[in-house]
Design a protein around this nucleic acid. Structure first.
Lengths: 200, 200
DNA sequence: TACAGTTTGTAGCAGTTGCTACATACCGCC
DNA sequence: GGCGGTATGTAGCAACTGCTACAAACTGTA
């Protein structure tokens, strides 16, 4: 065909997936090419062959992780109420792969806080898709499509913040109560008058 | 008295304040001793003389920044209602020095997400003092002392998350609505039955 | 077999990192 | 003047950073 070997961007995607796995476990803040390559069974030379540079690699990893996040959220069963949707989302976000993806997102967002590229722009795009997935989740739980984006926005922000505190809180009792409070708040937004401005 | 020169930990504190100013503006993720020292008009050699190492310096900077945050919040005038207290807090947290302090805290929390020291422990301590300041702010606005810690916890988490999204959102309209929603939610917690569990 | 393309290995560069050994200057006190 | 403390400057180390030049393998096609 057009190439000598059958694979072309194939190996790149394969490396991207493996790199994402590694970054999800070790974080991306101290990430450097040589240890990553070693963990992936290849060399830094290869990473720089398949990706145009570290930034390209990081952006790809972030993108991959975000796609997984969204896939996981979209595969959640529809909840019978907005409140229970929030609780189910939190439960999913604190275990397994989704937890790692969320943690990575927070890391990337923090790195992009000062406008540092490529984090800032990648996080910006990811956030929009993520918010859409959250809104759809709420709609599936009975929230009106009008109010879902608004509820999703508060839900997203609060979940990020709670996840930041996750490793700090001794015992999960306080955290659980905050999650319950959040669920009530989101449900309250979802139940407000369709065209209204909430309370006041 | 007990030393040859009159200053002892004096210069250390002075350096800590200056370093904090610098970190607040440039972030602590790419922080390295030599550029920092140059910006402070000294040398990396001196930083390592007054601080036992980079970790010590970073921990001190984080501590200093957190003290400033708390001082700023405690100097806010008492609001006439919980709702307005939240709005005033958000307004303060998105301008001037408090915004930078909050951003630094988010950065540190993200760095500590994987348990990396010294970030994890410093952030843990800082968070407790911060939550106490928030709770006091709510009490001053009319919230009952019983419910204030609980309301402060949700308030803290949501504010952190909103600040993470701050550089992403085009236009502040969406953000402002989320802040208003948050204010309602916190006010709702503050208004729940004193010994109760909120809704449900 | 020879060719052209993709994929990989070896070595290395210039820069930065945190940190340290050594020497020096300064200060008040005896 | 000398002494002991703090404070500071110079030079350098070993490790690591992202990245690249060069050369070698591999592949399917002709």
């Amino acid at each position: 065909m057009e190439t000598g070997t059958p694979r072309e961007g194939d190996r790149r995607r394969q490396l991207a997936e493996a790199a994402t796995d590694h970054v999800l476990e070790h974080g991306l803040i101290g990430l450097s090419l040589r240890p990553l390559a070693a963990a992936l069974g290849t060399s830094d030379r290869m990473l720089l062959y398949h990706f145009s540079g570290k930034d390209d690699l990081v952006a790809t990893v972030l993108h991959t992780s975000n796609e997984r996040s969204i896939g996981l959220v979209r595969s959640l069963p529809a909840a019978p109420s907005v409140r229970e949707a929030v609780l189910a989302l939190w439960a999913a976000s604190t275990h397994g792969q989704l937890e790692r993806c969320q943690r990575l997102y927070v890391e990337a967002a923090a790195l992009g806080l000062l406008g540092q590229e490529p984090y800032a722009s990648v996080v910006g795009e990811s956030n929009q898709a993520w918010l859409r997935a959250l809104a759809d989740l709420l709609v599936a739980a009975g929230c009106s499509p009008d109010l879902a984006p608004r509820a999703a926005h508060l839900l997203d922000a609060a979940m990020m913040g709670l996840q930041l505190d996750l490793p700090l809180d001794r015992g999960t009792a306080v955290l659980d109560r905050s999650v319950a409070d959040l669920a009530d708040a989101v449900a309250s937004i979802a139940a407000s008058a369709p065209g209204g401005q909430g309370s006041r």
